[in-house]
């Protein structure tokens, strides 16, 4: 690919994934040398129009205006890549999907009439075709750079759909579930974060969302044996990726 034109877009999100891009401190100069940043409001107020070679999209769709905006971005982009749990699975804000919106708005906002949002928070892939997903809450800067480097070289990016357990074992982390009885979503969560939590003795929170064919029911059964009640089990799945199908279904089984 000749110097590709890159755009970064924000929808309903916390900006953490965009920050991960800016956080590539050591590689930032190489990155701006290799790509042309045409639209990235968090980095520069200079904006250029499309078409774009790669659009990185952060955030979920929560308003009618955003549902239209994503269509326009898709039309102007050769590759559309979602970054993070919001764009890929609806984000933490998808927690509202299982409740009545009116009740939530009443409970939270002093002037509920001013709130004009859709009933649900949905991933980008429910609205337009997505070419690739970078998982995580936030995404890993390593995977972001890998994706760009792979696109530049015309090779497949290394984003394996293996569980967090594989990362634990490669890192030599002692399993927190087996050795300490700490509940861990690692076995049903996709690898990629760099083994952040188990490495420091914490269970995985599932930031990277479910692996393909995640067997959450079998994991929940083990959580039960570890002493968790159904409320606690449901809460494990109702997190950053609460909108991912496998987690929605498993959490609902414990209501």
């Amino acid at each position: 690919m000749d110097t590709p034109r890159i755009a970064v877009w924000k929808f309903a999100s916390c900006d953490g994934c965009q920050l991960s891009l800016l956080d590539c401190e050591e590689e930032l100069l190489d990155l701006v040398g290799a790509v042309h940043i045409a639209h990235f409001l968090e980095a520069s107020s200079r904006v250029e129009g499309g078409p774009y070679d790669i659009s990185f999209v952060e955030g979920s769709i929560t308003t009618a205006a955003d549902a239209e905006r994503i269509e326009a971005i898709r039309a102007a982009s050769r590759l559309l890549v979602t970054i993070g749990a919001c764009a890929t699975a609806g984000g933490i804000q998808a927690l509202r999907n299982s409740r009545a919106l009116g009740d939530l708005v009443q409970a939270v906002y002093p002037a509920p009439d001013l709130i004009k949002v859709l009933e649900t928070s949905t991933p980008i892939s429910e609205h337009v075709t997505v070419d690739a997903e970078l998982r995580g809450c936030p995404v890993s800067r390593h995977q972001l750079l890998e994706f760009v480097a792979a696109a530049l070289a015309g090779r497949k990016p290394d984003l394996p759909d293996v569980s967090q357990c594989a990362e634990c074992k490669r890192a030599g982390t002692v399993c927190v579930m087996v050795a300490h009885g700490t509940p861990c979503l690692g076995p049903v969560t996709r690898a990629g974060c760099g083994n952040l939590c188990p490495r420091v003795g914490r269970g995985c929170y599932g930031c990277f969302g479910p692996v393909d064919g995640a067997n959450c029911a079998a994991l929940s059964e083990q959580m039960r044996k570890l002493g968790l009640d159904t409320t606690a089990i449901a809460a494990l799945y109702r997190n950053f990726n609460s909108g991912a199908a496998a987690f929605v279904e498993e959490a609902a089984r414990h209501d």
Partner: peptide, 8 residues
């Protein structure tokens, strides 16, 4: 049905 295919 019990296996997580977690690779451990």
């Amino acid at each position: 049905s019990r296996c997580l295919h977690c690779t451990n």
